[in-house]
Design a protein around this nucleic acid. Sequence first.
DNA 1: ATCGGATTTCAGTAATTTCTGAAATCTTCG
DNA 2: CGAAGATTTCAGAAATTACTGAAATCCGAT
Lengths: 186, 186
Amino acid sequence: MRLTPAMERYVLHWGEMGARWGVNRSVAQIHALLYLAPKPITAEEIADTLSIARSNVSMSLKELLAWGLVQRTPVKGDRRDHFEALRDNWEILTRIVEERKKREIDPTLSILRACAMEAAADGQTAAETRQRIEGLLEFLETLSLWYGQVKGLPKPVLIGLLKMGGRVARFVPKKRAGKARGAGDG
Amino acid sequence: MRLTPAMERYVLHWGEMGARWGVNRSVAQIHALLYLAPKPITAEEIADTLSIARSNVSMSLKELLAWGLVQRTPVKGDRRDHFEALRDNWEILTRIVEERKKREIDPTLSILRACAMEAAADGQTAAETRQRIEGLLEFLETLSLWYGQVKGLPKPVLIGLLKMGGRVARFVPKKRAGKARGAGDG
DNA sequence: ATCGGATTTCAGTAATTTCTGAAATCTTCG
DNA sequence: CGAAGATTTCAGAAATTACTGAAATCCGAT
């Protein structure tokens, strides 16, 4: 596939962004290419277009499939696999968030729970330190709970909320008098 | 400084997490250590505790200072620099988000604008492709706008919103009949 | 069953990133 | 000013990560 300069710029930048967020450069570039491509393309075409080894494309596609960001699409009259990227930006975002939560946040929560228990029991971890761990655990649990509720809302509602921006603030109930501990205070 | 097993586990895990999000492992470990430490500590103490070179600690601290996640704190009667981490979890989160937006999202928006213009003008980029770029640009601009509004809200309001979870959905105005294009539809 | 193309795997190599130690610089105090 | 300690810089070494090409496997057609 022939890349126009605009496409090339996009693909290179996306590769760079991926690298900064812990995603392999080739994986990100391939994703960018499939995202831009007007129609499904073959692994070999990807390799040629981006000048990377066919085997690298194979492994990278495997990863993108695992993330659910790319799918195989059969093309009639051609027995080679063709690939295309998920197109809906909202869907792309939620897939990535969902996956990273599963792979990174949830395990972190487990570890924090274990650390909190261990620190409480060992009789040698400073009280301050214990509080930090417990506070962070509570904070992440609150965020996690929020995410769990919000992700279930229908897409139009989410988009509505997004478009409301700061105006949602009107609907937050006024806090009653007195000092209350809330998420993130620890 | 002597690490208890719970602290060590925390520090190692945090280093790992950092690595997955594009942050150098040592930087993340140092941040974890300072976050847990009951009082400000010196660079040398960090190097000893984590068994990394003094010079590496120096560079890593520089980076953490640039992120605004750590600060120098003078300790009377000691002319060595002491360091301590920001403690408020909410503040930590917003600093990180703010900084990554500035370093990664904003430049991405610029590049997308440039790509969109170039693609519109070159007469060789497929219409489909042009729409993808424009759609993504619009999507990211919407998110960016939302963030700009929300980050300005007072912390208690933000925490209030967080605790409301999915219940905010009640306040989204009902969409009028007819097909409307919204963020992320492209 | 077997042939031919498509695809995947993986061991070794290449490239990149991270880390170190020596030297340079800065800072404070006498 | 000069010494001693603290800190930073940076070139090269070490470690990690990514990429490649050859070989193995898969898969459909005959």
